[in-house]
Write a protein that binds this DNA or RNA. Structure first.
Length: 608
RNA sequence: GCACCCAUAGCUCAAUUGGAUAGAGCGUUUGUCUUCGGAACAAAAGGUUGCAAGUUCGAUUCUUGCUGGGUGCACCA
């Protein structure tokens, strides 16, 4: 039984001995003021209105507290109960229990309660294969990854899913741009059909990523994106738009004379994208389960058939234009087109197939990690899922997060106002290196360690910025100032962890258990009183889809440890027992910080 | 026009889902080093929680109405 359950049990028993009954779940909280104890309950206030025995609230609260106090021998965790303020009953944990709890964390046991047999599918990252990842994708990847870690820590079996948007006009544009402008020797302007014939016969006449002078474009996903930007400059040109449409038809129609050629070029550009995407994924540190990696090009056809079948059964309706539409008035939502009048699919088309696939997995939780701007879209998708019998709307969760914006305004790749993920990460890593150099990291680290740690610190700082606040709040990302290395930031926590490891490395062998329980110094107690809360914080973060709770907690713990560190010498403590205890505390702190950072997807280097 | 999200210290954000004196970081000012990693620690200044009502022992939190910002309402992705 964990502490919270134990305390709730004490309360329930006490209330029963007074011949009263609690009608709702007992709510425990941590008082904001440390003087008010470790846990607090408002049951007396709740109960007061429902009874007549006690004339005033204080009397009732005191009676409950007295009843608990008289039964306190049965509890090893609580050593004092008091009434305070308008009727709160406050619980004070015993030092013995706090130290016991710390010892388990010294041994790496985080005491997180696990659920059994729960399965979740979490979709995150929906990249378009025509351009490299930007800051918005970063937030998506980081929040998604953290949510996965949090659920796994709670015992969930999590399937990491993604969908690659690899078909449509946007890809065609990249292809067209490359075809018309990527030739080494640009000759006369030709129509796309003759160009693609020449490309198929001799693709060496066209440039490759390594040929580009701009270093950024050597990375293949940026290379692919470059041609998209070039092509899009012609977006007002009717003749060019006509070419794009023709290419799209050739891409779709197997009977088209140029189908094979267009597909070949499509594969080449996708290949470049995935090569660069994979590199970014490794740097950021996210992966997917192979059987849950889906491609729009593979599944949109299946989506079409679902929609057409359902239309025949009268679930959807066909408009005069020939398009198929879902009527959503009964859900209080605007109607949604599912298939164009020419029969081709849109986003919703393949998302319906994805939803169908996942609904058959017998999962307890299906999550889509997508920006808040898609809120209505997902309400519509979930309603349509319900119409098709895939489950109830409430079974599907949209984990929405606020937009990442730049100081100048909304990001738009079309207007060129976009910041690439790679650029931000690189700047952060450069800044990390610079700070590390100033603080003498090179004396502690080998050259390759130095590079590796700079990566962990720089990327960690970016991740913290992306998930350190409420997911729904918008994030104005100023490249120069947003990625912080001090204060509320990943490097502060990483630094504290490295500090702990440094002390521990000086004693070499494993830290043994300290058996004697001594009076705790105030700074020691502050650390312990935070430490036991770790499992609660993780649970809350997982339940609420809110990784920032973990970040806030880690920051507080690191602060508390640093205060302890300045006031309480460890290695040169007054006596051996104190030294042993403080080493324990140091090891436990290091373990919690490292585990907490891991849940956020952030590394905790031993030295930095 | 309708729907959703947001509004808290100069700036960026917390606030245990209705709790006790609304807390941090950055920035500003001032301290701490014979010490285990100073990317640190301690302190000061900084608030009518956008505005106005309501609900109750108690409201940053819930309700309603305003104001201001964002997003969405495509046969785009």
């Amino acid at each position: 039984m964990n502490v919270q359950d134990e305390i709730k049990h004490l309360i329930t028993k006490a209330v029963l001995t007074l011949n009263l009954a609690i009608s709702e779940e007992i709510h425990l909280e941590h008082p904001a003021n440390a003087d008010h104890g470790d846990y607090s309950t408002n049951v007396a206030m709740k109960l007061f209105r429902e009874q007549e025995k006690y004339k005033n609230l204080g009397e009732l609260a005191q009676a409950i507290a007295d009843a608990i106090n008289s039964a306190l021998e049965s509890s090893s965790a609580v050593n004092k109960v008091e009434v305070a303020g308008p009727g709160f009953i406050n619980f004070y944990l015993s030092d013995t229990w706090l130290i016991e709890d710390m010892n388990s964390k010294t041994n790496g046991e985080m005491s997180i309660q696990k659920v059994q047999g729960k399965k979740a599918v979490i979709e995150y990252m929906q990249p378009n294969t025509n351009k490299p990842l930007h800051v918005g994708h970063l937030r998506n990847a980081i929040l998604g990854w953290s949510l996965i870690q949090l659920l796994e820590a709670q015992g969930w079996q999590v399937h990491k899913a993604t969908i690659n948007n690899d078909r449509g006009l946007h890809i065609i544009k990249s292809m067209w741009g490359y075809l018309t402008q990527g030739r080494r020797q640009s000759g006369e302007t030709k129509a796309w059909r003759s160009l693609i014939e020449e490309w198929v016969q001799n693709s060496d006449q066209w440039v490759k990523p390594s040929d580009m002078e701009d270093e950024r474009l050597n990375k293949p996903d940026h290379f692919a994106g470059h041609w998209y930007v070039q092509a899009d400059k012609e977006a007002e040109n009717e003749k060019v738009i006509q070419e794009w449409k023709e290419m799209l038809i050739a891409w779709e129609s197997k009977t088209d004379e140029y189908h094979q050629s267009v597909r070949k070029l499509w594969q080449q550009l996708n290949h470049w994208f995935y090569e660069g995407y994979q590199e970014s994924a490794e740097l950021i540190g996210f992966t997917f389960d192979p059987e849950y990696v889906k491609y729009e090009s593979d599944i949109y056809e299946a989506g079409r058939h679902i929609i057409l079948d359902a239309e025949k059964k009268g679930v959807f309706i066909r408009l005069d234009s020939g398009a198929v539409q879902a009527k959503l008035a009964e859900y209080n939502l605007p109607d949604k087109i599912l298939l164009r009048s020419d029969g081709t699919g849109i986003y919703m088309t393949f998302d319906i197939e994805l939803t169908r696939q996942r609904s058959q997995l017998d999962a307890d939780l299906l999550v889509w990690v997508v920006g808040n701007d898609q809120a209505l879209y997902f309400q519509q998708l979930f309603a349509i899922g319900e119409m098709l019998g895939y489950g109830k709307r409430e079974d599907f969760k949209h984990f929405a997060y606020g937009m990442v914006r730049l100081p100048e305004g909304k990001m738009s790749s079309r207007k060129g106002r976009v910041v690439f993920a790679d650029d931000i990460l690189e700047m952060a890593m450069t800044k990390a290196k610079q700070i590390m150099a100033e603080t003498g990291s090179q004396e502690r680290l080998t050259e390759s360690e130095y590079e590796e740690v700079a990566k962990e610190v720089g990327v960690g700082a970016v991740k913290w910025t992306m998930l350190g606040q409420d997911p729904l709040s918008e994030l104005t990302f100023d490249v120069d100032t947003s990625v912080s290395f001090k204060g509320y930031a990943a490097p502060f926590v990483q630094y504290t962890h490295a500090r702990c490891r440094s002390i521990l490395s000086k004693v070499g062998k494993e830290v043994g258990e300290s058996t004697t329980v001594q009076a705790l110094a105030p700074d020691e107690k502050t650390v312990l009183r935070l430490m036991y809360q770790f499992p609660e914080v993780v649970q809350k973060a997982a339940e609420e889809f809110a990784p920032h709770h973990v970040a806030v907690y880690l920051f507080e713990l690191a602060q508390a440890y640093n205060a302890f560190y300045t006031n309480c010498p460890v290695l040169s403590a007054d006596n051996e027992a104190t030294k042993a205890f403080r080493l324990q505390l140091t090891a436990a702190t290091a373990n919690v910080l490292k585990e907490g950072l891991r849940l956020l997807g952030i590394q905790a280097p031993e030295k930095m």
